[in-house]
Amino acid sequence: MNYDSKRYHIDLAIYSYNSISKSEKSKRILKGVSGRFLSGQISAILGPSGAGKTTLMNILAGYKTSKASGDILINGKPRCLESFRKISCYIKQDEQLPPFLTVKESMEVAAGLKLGRSNSNLSKKRIVRGEKKRLTVAFELINNPLVMFFDEPTSGLDSYNSYQSILFLKTLAKGDRNVICTIHQPSAKLFEQFDYVYVLAEGHCVYRGIVTNCLPFISSISLECPSHYNPADFSK
């Protein structure tokens, strides 16, 4: 299947995932989760350790396909992994950057590998720019992916740089990209920058929707977030 759209919406339809440990005991990590991640917005997959955030991210990105049941739809049609990987990228928590190259040299290597001979050297030089945390993103932006997955994009950053990084990703999302992040302990200020939040607990989805409706939903089930308390922490 060839994707020729400029906007890619991802539907997760009743998905379950079982893992097999070394002792060959099956553990159900995701339990009948579903939802929709829209293009043009930045989404946060939120939850405590062990909730299934990374597993869900891996399934959405197409890195886990066995031992799973359910459907992933792209714009309402079954996902073709080969085509999907051409329009998406997955940026993991640890930056996999060459240790002995400068930023400029690293970008030139990435441009040469990803753009190939179809682009002139001058065109490649115009694309080359970045810094370490953003450099990992820049590697993937070279071929302009429209679906972007980030595993803990603020890991190892202080509060200022965390905020700036999420603002940068939010800007990318506004360019008709579908940006999905797992995030562990966002500050209240950081939490407010997300357009959509998907909250997991013990493999179940306990809330999915826009950020501003999160606290009203919590109130509707007779739970009150205390004043001056971080809504992201309370939601978990």
Rank of each mutant, 00 (worst) to 15 (best):
D176Y: 09
S187N: 08
N121S: 14
D4R: 04
L56N: 04
A232H: 03
S39A: 15
N75C: 00
E24I: 07
K114S: 07
E202K: 15
Y163Q: 10
D151L: 06
S16H: 14
T102K: 12
L30C: 08
L169H: 13
T102Y: 08
S235W: 06
G112A: 06
A232L: 06
I14G: 10
S120D: 06
L169D: 04
L46M: 00
F149E: 01
S88K: 14
D176W: 00
I183A: 03
P98G: 07
S23I: 12
P231N: 03
S220Y: 06
L60P: 03
P153C: 04
R208V: 07
K67F: 14
Y198I: 03
S219M: 12
A110N: 04
A110W: 11
L215W: 01
K114R: 13
M1N: 04
S235I: 11
D233R: 05
G35E: 04
S222R: 03
D195W: 02
E192K: 15
L113I: 13
P153W: 01
V109Q: 02
K53A: 06
Y63Q: 10
G70H: 08
Y207L: 08
L141F: 10
I166M: 01
A201M: 08
L12S: 05
I42L: 13
G50F: 01
G209F: 00
I10Y: 11
I127K: 14
I166H: 07
I180H: 08
Y163F: 13
F37N: 05
L215V: 15
K174N: 13
F150V: 14
E24Q: 10
L113C: 05
G116W: 10
Y198M: 09
K27W: 02
C89L: 04
N144K: 10
K27V: 12
C205G: 09
Y8C: 06
S88I: 08
S222E: 07
Y196P: 02
N2M: 04
P231W: 03
K104W: 10
L113E: 12
F37I: 09
R208M: 13
L200G: 09
I87R: 08
L190P: 04
P78N: 05
A188D: 15
S39M: 08
L73S: 13
I221W: 09
S16G: 12
K86E: 15
K25S: 08
K125C: 01
K125G: 05
R117A: 10
G32N: 15
D158W: 10
A173T: 07
G52W: 02
L81P: 12
T136H: 09
V103L: 11
Y3S: 06
I42F: 13
A111V: 01
Y3E: 07
S69N: 11
H9P: 01
L115H: 00
H228V: 02
L60W: 01
A138F: 10
L60A: 03
R28D: 02
N230C: 09
L122F: 14
K31L: 03
G70N: 00
H228T: 11
K53E: 14
I87A: 00
K174G: 15
F191P: 04
N230F: 01
T102W: 02
N18Y: 11
P78Y: 05
D11W: 11
K133W: 06
I218W: 15
